[in-house]
Amino acid sequence: MSASGRASGLGKFLLLTIFLFFIWILLSGVYTPRRWDEILTGLIASAIISAFTSQLLIKCPASRALNPLRWIRGIAYLIYYFLYAEVRAHLDVIYRILHPAMPIRPGIVSVPCELKTDFGLAAVACSITNTPGTVVVDVDERERKFFVHWINVTSQDEQTCRSEISKPFEDRLRRVFE
């Protein structure tokens, strides 16, 4: 392994160790250094797990996670997603459930996606599936396409579907993950 490869491997290892140790602190509820034995156990356990899995879990350079702008954009995306996109989708599906005539037009449409990284593709797919009314049924990784089951198919054209379903997520997540 080359020197730069080793350095990036160390970066991935440290990143995952810090993340796992942070989760350990939150879950165990040990916030004072007086209980140093529990903190030390957590540190050793996260280092061992990270040594085995960091190369498998993190595929892009670890230095990307150090850019604070990405974190700010990610938090802004979460606020937008939960306060606007989720609320709108929930109200829409609740209306369709409770309406006596049940106005649904279900169908599976294909939606192209322009993000390049695996993290970006997974984040867009999870965002689509987590909003009620759209579920990703299959992914064509070669042609970068989602097959989305949509509860209210208004159009079968790919670009129209993209602007209706995934464009707002894609535009915001592109600046977080790429």
Partner: peptide, 16 residues
């Protein structure tokens, strides 16, 4: 809801 796939949307409402 009439079939399996449409029911998944109702399940998402219940989860989130």
């Amino acid at each position: 809801f009439p079939n399996y796939f449409v029911r998944l949307h109702a399940a998402t409402v219940a989860v989130i």
